[in-house]
Design a protein around this nucleic acid. Sequence first.
DNA 1: CCTTTGCCAGAATACGTATTCTCTCCACGT
DNA 2: ACGTGGAGAGAATACGTATTCTGGCAAAGG
Lengths: 336, 336
Amino acid sequence: MPELTQNQIAKLSQVSQATVSRVLRGDPRVNEELRQRVLSVIEKHGYVPDARAQSLRSQRTGTLGLVVHRSPKQLARDPFFSALIAAIIEFAGKAGYHLCVDAARAVQSRQAIYEELLRTRRVDGLILVEPQTQDERMPRLLEEGFPFVLIGRYEPTDAVYSVDNDNIGAARTATEHLIRKAHYRIAYVSGPRGVFVCEDRYQGYRQALERAGIEPSSDLVAWGDFSEEHGYRAMSRLLSLPNPPTAVLAVDDLVAVGALRAVKERCRAVPQQVAVIGFNDSPFCNYVEPPLSSIAVDIRALAQIATDLLIRLIEEREVHQRRYIVPCQLVERSST
Amino acid sequence: MPELTQNQIAKLSQVSQATVSRVLRGDPRVNEELRQRVLSVIEKHGYVPDARAQSLRSQRTGTLGLVVHRSPKQLARDPFFSALIAAIIEFAGKAGYHLCVDAARAVQSRQAIYEELLRTRRVDGLILVEPQTQDERMPRLLEEGFPFVLIGRYEPTDAVYSVDNDNIGAARTATEHLIRKAHYRIAYVSGPRGVFVCEDRYQGYRQALERAGIEPSSDLVAWGDFSEEHGYRAMSRLLSLPNPPTAVLAVDDLVAVGALRAVKERCRAVPQQVAVIGFNDSPFCNYVEPPLSSIAVDIRALAQIATDLLIRLIEEREVHQRRYIVPCQLVERSST
DNA sequence: CCTTTGCCAGAATACGTATTCTCTCCACGT
DNA sequence: ACGTGGAGAGAATACGTATTCTGGCAAAGG
């Protein structure tokens, strides 16, 4: 049963298509009798507007694009992204927008996705999650004046609208927390170099060390990826150093869990001999043994701000504040 | 810098818009000289087709809809759904489709989403994840002949295309596994009644008991939701029975983790005194203490089959096999 | 009585693409 | 020489909606 069009409604009501459109849009300049005639026909036969035609005409699609800079496999594993996506779906939905999601790690396919979503006018705006420090698309997006919002950071210009965690402050807080627990050799197990989150947390870590007068050692910093496996291997290596760390700040809970595994495998007591703290306060932090201290990121706030910001950009084309920072919170559990 | 249209390209090339369209679509009936002229103009100024206009014209949007029957909050928490969504994004992308995701638990808003996505022709087809046993929209979708695929099951008619885990078989396998470990009082901590997954797993559980000649007891079955909290509370209650269970099959890893917490809180040894097994083989199964046995669901296979099936339905309107069953696999760890 | 004003609704048009229709031009066969 | 056929390209149209343009009609005003 194909959907009726305004034209068919018009014929059935014996009015013009324009009148049907006016009735539907609540235009006051339409005679009450005709209005009733049209409404009763619609009531009887049903009518749903064609979104494609509407968006061709109105230049609006009512859809936001979400591009996550991770491979689908990483996406599947990391609860942070699923929570973020879920929250964005929620807020976009509340504001009457749909959401088109894509994920891609390879630069090339990301490029294609941008073209696809944006230039083809499939979406009204874009939310980009954690682009990397050298991201070649940003200048083009800016130049084209296309509405987009970052979750994360972009350094080269401050013309970009973005929301970010206070990663530097949070990492500093976490490190200071470890220092207060009398740890002086503190390791940082990170994700890849060049990813803002990792670099920022590294900075916060360094700041805390410096403020406490601890000499930072590059031996205690391990760059890698966001996997449990990396956490395990990096921590294993660190623990076999002649002068091993007594505490570790992980860039991510998944990485922290891997580190935890390495520590337990060597039968070091947690937190007495080695303290571990992660990032994101993932649900599973409560379930691991011992429960993992972590930095809680306010995912819903990130999603909320990013979505609102983007929609304001789309609908009004102007927003005063460009950068938003969402504070994080230390969640202390038994691992520290 | 607004995107150029075929019309503008046509003017610049001094040909008609129809010719530009023909060149772009590779129509052979166009003079080589004109073709070159058009191509060089496009090369110089750039051209990206307008997806809205194309879909209005072609009746295809190149987008699939995904509707998950869970609240965004549950979505955020449960790694099963994030993995599923990620996999569907991946396969849809590979097939050249975009993905529009929505989630809603309330029946009413689900209704609205169906209307929105489907009747407005925003998507070419729909993937519905785990609808409930009494789902009032299925008949309407069928009647309208709209392409859609279920991940899960729908009983009232077998005219529906669907992919599902072998939930009955898997729950039977899990329960038999517990029986082999010499457990005779086995509890089943479930999600809500009326949700197919829960009902099917319940059936498998009962089958295993019956085959082993164990009298099933409704005291040992706890219906609830998919939360860790429910697992904890239900298991606490079960353990304080005069004749408590020595093993528990949980409908979900999250629920299993809650049950595990209840067991450990009472200082019962796992798996010696109480064995626990979950469902989904979530990443965190490895990290909890003790590592949680679970039934691994082949999420990527589910996603792959559902996506392929839907795309075939959209593009060819006919598929032979209607129901697909994906086998599950027991993953034995220390909790059993 | 004629013009102005205002209301209301149909006609026309635009959005951008894909396809059909139509016309011109040229080569070929009788 | 004239009709036939076919190639190739522009003109026209459709997809469905929203808006502007236009015109008819009646009431109001001179």
